[in-house]
Amino acid sequence: MNSSQLLGITTFTYLFSTLLYVAMFVFKVKRMGKFATGFTAIALLIQTLGLGLRWYESYQMGIGHAPLTNMYESVVFFAWTIIAIYLAIEWKFRIRIIGAFAVPFAFLAMAYASLSTDMTKNISPLVPALQSNWLIAHVITCFIGYAAFTVAAGLGVMYLVKETSSSKRTSDDKTLLGSLPTLPQIEDITHKTMIFGFIWLTAGIITGAVWANSAWGTYWSWDPKETWSLITWFIYAITLHARYTRGWGGKRVAWLAIIGFFSVIFTYYGVNFILSGLHSYGSN
C-alpha cells in the first residue's frame, strides 16, 4: 500500500460521503446521518494516513519534506482541511445537513487532484526557495483559511436555497427545503465560519510576508499572488464590516460568501495559471 493508492481511495470515499449526505437530505432519512458522519470521519482518517505516508515516502527518497509543496499536494491538503473543518462545524453546531453542501467541495478537489493532467503527482525535492521553516506555517494557515471560506460558500448556497422555500424561519421534515436549518441559523454559522477563515487568512498572509522577507528581503512586493490574497482579505473585511455596522445580513452576506469563495479560488488557483509571479512552484 502506498500513498498514491490511499489518496486515490480518498477520492471515492469523499464521493460516497457526498452521496450519503445528499441522500440523507433528499430522502429525509435522518438515520443515514450518523452513518454519513462516521463514514466521512473514516475517509478523513484514510486521507490523513495517505498524507502521512507520502511524508514518510519523501524521507525514504532522501528528500524528506511535508507533503505541501506543489499543486497536487496542496489540492489534496485543501480537501483534507475542508473535511476537517466541516466535521468540526457539524460537531459544534450539531447540524448534519451542512455536509450535503460542504463535502462535495472536498470530493471535487480530490477528483481534480486525481484526474488532472496539468500537474505532477510525483514527490519532488524542494527547490532552494521552498527550503524554509515558514513553508509549513504558511501553507497550513492559508489552507485553513481557504477551506473555511469554501465551507462558508457552501453555507451561502444553502442559505439561498432555503430562501426560496416557504418555511424560512422553521426547520421541520415536512418539505425538502423545510428540513434545512432556519435562515438565522445558517446565517449565524456562515458568519462564524467566515470569521474563522478571516483570522487564518490573515495569519497566512502574515506568514507569507515574513517568509518573503527572509528569502528576498521584501515582505510585500505587490506580486499577483500577494495582491489577490489582499483582495480576498478585503472582500471578507468588507463583508464583516457591512454586517457589523450596516446590519447587512441574509442574502447579501450569502452572496458575499460565494463571491469571496471565487476570489479565494482565483487567489489559490487562477493566479498560478493565468497571472505570473513568485508562486510559480504551484503551477507544476
Binding site: 505587490w222 495582491t227 489577490w228 483582495i231 473585511a237 455596522t245 497571472l275
Partner: peptide, 23 residues
C-alpha cells in the same frame, strides 16, 4: 463606515487592475 467600505472596494478594484496589467 460607508466611506471605509467604498475605499476598500476601490482599492480592491484597483488591485485587480494592477494584477491584470503587468507592472
Amino acid at each position: 463606515v460607508k466611506l471605509a467600505l467604498m475605499t476598500l472596494c476601490i482599492i480592491s478594484l484597483a488591485s485587480v487592475i494592477g494584477t491584470i496589467i503587468p507592472q
